[in-house]
Every structure is written in structure tokens, then in C-alpha cells.
Design a protein around this nucleic acid. Structure first.
Ligand code: NAD
Ligand code: NAD
Lengths: 228, 228
DNA sequence: TATTGCTTGTTCTCTTGTTCACAAACTCGC
DNA sequence: GCGAGTTTGTGAACAAGAGAACAAGCAATA
């Protein structure tokens, strides 16, 4: 009996959001159950891998039938620690920061953008429509505040996630400020390796990196399967 | 003698862009050589791993000294197939598409945004300043064209990379159009699994996925090292 | 209740990736 | 030219992950 809280391998953790997304699509289409084979097809992975991954969450399938879509979604959420909303602050309201702020997909997926800060006085006060998980309340707005007020803002709004969308040279300072403000995890778009305490998990999304990896597989075109 | 063109493991390929970025930073600071230990520090990985990774490119270090920064950068580029510029077309000129188009970092890193297409007639004709690898020629512009002209545009500008920044429901159609136009690799921001021929490598960048992975490690905070 | 058909959960094997540890090889100062 | 100090490149041990295969278990039907 492994129990639901046994260790989940890193490789599995990286795939759980993919399964979650596929399950959400299935639920939207009205499907109530799904087999590992179908789930694997839709997620583009091996079926045995799907079953093994899901077995780490507990034994929630029914032999001869498959998995209950809604219930499995809940188990994935529970395993990932997606309990309620995790509020997000965006640091840097430039090209990318504005795109992120205007993007409704965050709130829909449980990560509402609750605050935005920038260092540029001209940007302070700009208003952005806010979309929470429960529909869009058109009247609610997020106002861009000065980065110096970061700690205050994080505390007042109980924000736990920081997104860095500043230029590269300001990214480490932004990370330091976020850590000092008590943020619990960081997603950065700046192409630099951040120096943060081990207790603060962080990930980097770098488009040039992705394109460079693609470049390699393109050069080897046909001879290798893409590893996404 | 493994030779420079022996197989490079997937895990290594995924790290090469990181090394490349660190090396570029070092070169900018005027450093001419670097040891595996220092490179590992800056990249946030194990030094032995760095040496093993680099050994797949060939034997380019000097014992007792380290690696020549400029030369190693060239070797990484060669291995990744970064020969000259790989021109990019962006499909979808919305929030994200505009941010990407206005972002100079692409061109600087060898992936100039050479064309943009959208399905919305209102967006056709919009001009975006273009930044090539060699400085910014303020007069050059990229004009948003209709998505129906995609094949033509791709052919005329010798574009090899497609970036999908359309809404989720249009992503597969965009992918199909890109493949039909003869694109060689695809980077998608839509949170869906694309169905493309095996000969076209593709990768997905999904922010919600990243945040969900962070959520897991945050819940296990302190007990686990982030795996980025 | 027995039988049939299907799908999970898990075991086992193979492959890939990581890390340690150290000989080989190079530089530099003397 | 030699010795001291450094750093690479790689063999070997170890860990993690992938995938095939199949027994166990459930549903449905008769
Ligand atoms: N725009 C893109 O499509 C894109 C793509 C890939 C990566 N990136 C990366 O994302 C980051 C942002 O890109 P961008 O195009 O939005 O840049 P940008 O210059 O348009 O915006 C940066 C914003 O950060 C603000 N800022 C600067 N220093 C700050 C600080 N110390 N604290 C708070 N705010 C600060 C600036 O005032 C500005 O509003 C960069 O690191 C870039 O490399 C962007
Ligand atoms: N904006 C963000 O910060 C962000 C973050 C994460 C993911 N995404 C994803 O990126 C994608 C784009 O997001 P967005 O906020 O820019 O959306 P958006 O609605 O602002 O822009 C989408 C654009 O695509 C165009 N389009 C629609 N159908 C098309 C088609 N068939 N061919 C060509 N163009 C078409 C639309 O006209 C529009 O201009 C979405 O899939 C979204 O989930 C966006």
C-alpha cells in the first residue's frame, strides 16, 4: 500500500499538469470516464507511463472501465497542491508583463493576477481588467503599483507566487525583492539563472532556449523524436 | 575518439542553451576562459555534469586551464545547429503575439521575427519595428499579414520556424497551416497537444503548467530541490 | 453464478542520466 | 627541464525513468 502521500517522482510531477489539462478538456466535452490508453493518446505519451504516473496518486482507476474524469482531476489537483487560488504578482509591466496581465488564462487555471508592480513611474496607476476564476467581474481592476511597495502588496493580498517580467539586468533584484517580501515560488521570463534560497522553488521560461533546442532536433530532422 | 558528431543525449541538448547563455554573459564581461567548476556554478548544475555534457561536443578544454569561452560558444552553436539566422513567423497577433513581436531578444539570439500573420482583418497592416541580429535598423518594419498568405510569406522569406500565439481553439489549425507551408519546427504557447508529423519537432510553453509544477514543490517546500 | 472481455496496477528488464573519483595532461614558476 | 598545482575527460558505480508484459480485478451478460 503506497498511500496517496508517497513520494511522487519528478518526471511524474512534470507530466501531471499535462494530464490535468487533457482531463479538463475531456470534462468540458462531457466525458465521464477515460482509459489510460485514450489519455495517453491525447497527452502524446506512452499508456504504461500514464498508468504508472497515476498510480503514484493512489489507486483510483477501475479495472475494466478506466478512470473517472472529474475525480481524477481532483486527485491531480490535490497532488500538485492546487488547493484554492494561488495569487500572483507580476514584476515588470513591459511588453511581456502587459500581455501576461491581460491574459485571462491565469485566473481560469487558479492563479489570479492580483497585483502588478513596476519601477517606471509612468506605468504606476495603469489599470488592468481582472479576471478571477469565477467568471469576469468587469468592474474589478488591478492597478500597477511601485516596486517599492512590493512587500506591502504581497502581504496585504496574501500573494504567494511571483512572476518576473523585468529586463534581464533587473531580474536578480526582482527575485531578491520577491524573496524578501515572503513569496513562496517564482516563475521568471528573464534569461538568467537566479540565486534564491533553496526553500523558494523557481523555474525559468526562456523562449530562445526553446528555439535553440528545436534547432537541434530540426537539424537531426526525421531521425529523432521530439522529446516534449 | 568519439568525434564531434557522435550522438548527443537529449538531457545534454536541453542544457546546452543554458551553457550558451552563461558563456555569452562571460564573454560580455571580457572573460576569455572558464573552468567547468565556474561554469557549473553560474549555470546552477553539477560540475561533472558540465564536463560530461561538453565532452559530447568534442574535446575542447585544456587541462589545468579550462575552456576558451568564445571557442566553446561556437562549438555549442555548431552542435545545436545554430548556423546563421533562423527566421521566425508568429501566428496570432494578440496580447502575447504583440509582446513577442516587440521583443528584441529573439533577433539578438539568432531568431529574427521576419513575418507575422493573423486572421483578424483589423490587425492586418499593423507595423512592428524589426530588430535583426546586427543592431536595430529603425527603418525596417514587419507588417502583419493575413493568415491565408502564410505559405507565400514563409516561402518568400525563407522562414523555418513557426510560433503559435493564437487562442487554444485555433492552435491545431495554425499548426496544420504551418506544416503545410513547409515550416521546420514549431513553438506553441497554446495549452494543447499538437498533432504534427514526426518530422516537425515542436515544443510547448505553457505558463499554467509551470505554475502548477511550482505549486507541487512549494507544497513540499524545503524538502525538495527544484529540478529546473 | 459462471464466463467473457476489458483495463488497471505492478513487476521486471532495459535504457538513460547523474555523480564520484582519479589518471592524464597542461601551465607556470623556478 | 622539473615539480607543484590545476583542471579536464572518462570509467565505473549508482539512481532514475521508460516500456513491455501480465496477473489481478471489475463489469456486463447470460
Ligand atoms: N517580450 C517578450 O516577448 C519576451 C520574450 C522572452 C523573454 N522575455 C524576457 O522578459 C523580460 C521582459 O521583457 P519585456 O519585453 O517585457 O521588457 P520591457 O523592457 O518591455 O519591460 C520591462 C519592464 O520592467 C520594468 N522594470 C525595470 N526594472 C525594474 C525593476 N527593478 N523592478 C520592477 N520593474 C522593473 C520596466 O519599467 C519595464 O516596464 C526580459 O527579461 C526579456 O528577456 C520577453
Ligand atoms: N497572453 C499571455 O500572456 C499568454 C500566456 C500564456 C499562454 N497564452 C496562450 O497564448 C495564446 C494567445 O494568447 P493571447 O492572450 O495573445 O490571445 P489573444 O486573443 O489576445 O490573441 C490571439 C490572436 O490570434 C488571432 N487568431 C485567432 N485565430 C487565428 C487563426 N486561425 N489564425 C491566425 N490568427 C488567429 C486573433 O485574431 C488574435 O489576434 C493562447 O493560446 C493563450 O492560451 C497567452
Amino acid at each position: 500500500m503506497p498511500g496517496p502521500s508517497a513520494a511522487v517522482p519528478d518526471a511524474t510531477v512534470e507530466r501531471l499538469p499535462l494530464y490535468h489539462q487533457v482531463l479538463a478538456d475531456l470534462a468540458r466535452e462531457g466525458e465521464t470516464t477515460v482509459s489510460s490508453v485514450r489519455l495517453a493518446e491525447l497527452a502524446g505519451v506512452n499508456a504504461a507511463k500514464v498508468r504508472k504516473d497515476l498510480s503514484f496518486l493512489g489507486s483510483y482507476g477501475t479495472r475494466g472501465v478506466g478512470y473517472d474524469v472529474e475525480f481524477l482531476m481532483l486527485q491531480v489537483q490535490r497532488t500538485l497542491g492546487l488547493t484554492g487560488d494561488a495569487r500572483v504578482v507580476i514584476v515588470g509591466f513591459g511588453n511581456l508583463g502587459q500581455a501576461l496581465a491581460n491574459y485571462g488564462g491565469f485566473g481560469e487555471r487558479g492563479f489570479p493576477v492580483t497585483a502588478i508592480v513596476d519601477a517606471d513611474p509612468d506605468k504606476i496607476g495603469t489599470q488592468v481588467p481582472r479576471s478571477d476564476a469565477n467568471g469576469e467581474s468587469a468592474t474589478e481592476r488591478v492597478v500597477v503599483e511601485h516596486v517599492e511597495r512590493l512587500a506591502e502588496v504581497v502581504r496585504d493580498h496574501k500573494i504567494t507566487v511571483g512572476v518576473i517580467a523585468t529586463p534581464q539586468h533587473a531580474a536578480q533584484a526582482a527575485a531578491d525583492a520577491l524573496v524578501a517580501a515572503g513569496i513562496q515560488s517564482i516563475l521568471s521570463f528573464a534569461p538568467v539563472v537566479l540565486d534564491v534560497p533553496e526553500s523558494v522553488p523557481w523555474r525559468k521560461v526562456d523562449l530562445a532556449t526553446e528555439l535553440q533546442i528545436l534547432s537541434f532536433y530540426q537539424a537531426r530532422s526525421g531521425s529523432l523524436q521530439h522529446p516534449a
